[in-house]
């Protein structure tokens, strides 16, 4: 570990620890905002792992959010499973569904892969419209009679916060763990030179499949939590490409795609702009979208790339360096 990484890791740990006690000292309004920021951070970290490190540029992650929303709803509201228990279960549902999806969309490359994932997400949305138990497209609510029986409003609010907090920490640790493992080494080899990596015996499809499933699971868990928090499932919102993919993609591009701190920087920018344009959703999309499009041309590695150009350092210890002359 370099000195910068050591400081970064300690600093990050401290921030997350302090954040963990937020419900004990913070305001309610801020807590609501933080839940939103933490869920977007989780989605961004995961999308970065997918697109930035594995070359799988998906714009269909809203499909997993929607599936998780409906699976959480059917478990907790219809079958009296505790909603917070349904979060990991929904993650597993998404991971399972991601396998056949991958078998289809992995046949496409680059931009066509992106649109392919979008089509699949659309198919899931249209299918849920046809299922009557899930409301056939009508707004479904989680009620205190079923899903939230036994939960007071205050407890529920804090559990949502801690769940979002744990998801963000888990996503961070997963990324570090994956990138430091053999899998991460294979990913970087594939990213730098796919043919060369294949020649050295890296099974690209297997590596990508594992990442795809991890990201689907984590995205699903986040999707389930988002809808526990809102206590309603609306077809259009649950499968919204704008909310669950566009904003996430913008966060990662602005912060720095393919950089571990990118999602954190990006979510900061997202937070600032969302606060500034509180009541104007349309302009929020215009500003963030324009910023992201500009960034992808001017600095494809985002803010992290700009910082790196000025002063190379790293918060998370994930880069491999060749140290010449050391045995």
């Amino acid at each position: 570990m370099s000195r910068g990484s050591r400081i970064g890791t300690v600093g990050m740990t401290l921030i997350f620890v302090v954040l963990g006690f937020f419900p004990l000292y913070g305001s309610d309004r801020m807590q609501v905002t933080l839940v939103q920021v933490l869920t977007y951070l989780t989605l961004a970290i995961m999308w970065n792992l997918l697109a930035g490190y594995s070359g799988l540029v998906s714009v269909g992650q809203q499909g997993f959010i929607g599936i998780a929303a409906y699976s959480m709803f059917s478990m907790s509201e219809l079958n009296s499973i505790d909603p917070f228990v349904s979060v990991p279960l929904s993650a597993m549902v998404c991971a399972a569904i991601s396998i056949p999806v991958a078998l289809l969309v992995f046949r496409l490359r680059g931009g066509y892969f992106a649109i392919g994932t979008w089509v699949v997400a659309e198919v899931f949305r249209l299918l849920t419209l046809e299922i009557n138990v899930l409301g056939a497209g009508n707004v479904q609510s989680l009620t205190t009679k079923n899903a939230f029986s036994g939960y007071g409003l205050e407890v529920r609010k804090n559990l949502v916060f801690w769940s979002a907090w744990m998801l963000a920490i888990g996503a961070t640790l997963t990324t570090i763990f994956v990138l430091r493992s053999r899998l991460g080494l294979a990913l970087q080899a594939v990213r730098d030179d796919a043919d060369g990596a294949r020649g050295l015996g890296v099974d690209i499809t297997r590596v990508r499949m594992i990442i795809w499933m991890i990201v689907a699971a984590w995205t699903g868990a986040t999707g389930a939590l988002i809808h526990i928090n809102s206590a309603t499932v609306t077809n259009r919102d649950a499968f919204s490409v704008a909310s669950w993919t566009a904003l996430v993609v913008f966060i990662v591009i602005i912060g720095g795609v393919g950089s571990t701190i990118g999602p954190y920087l990006g979510v900061g920018v997202y937070w600032i702009i969302t606060e500034q344009l509180k009541q104007q959703n349309t302009w929020r999309f215009i500003v963030l979208g324009a910023l992201a499009a500009t960034m992808s041309v001017v600095s494809p590695k985002g803010i992290a790339g700009l910082i790196h150009r000025w002063k190379p350092f790293e918060i998370f210890p994930v880069t491999r360096r060749l140290e010449v002359g050391k045995e």
Binding site: G111, V297, P300
Partner: peptide
């Protein structure tokens, strides 16, 4: 400016532009 061996930048740039056009 986004053309290169990695199609990522071009895809994401056009995705951003699409969202901006739609919202404008």
């Amino acid at each position: 400016r986004t053309i290169g061996p990695d199609p990522l930048a071009g895809i994401l740039c056009s995705f951003g532009i699409g969202v901006v056009v739609q919202n404008l």
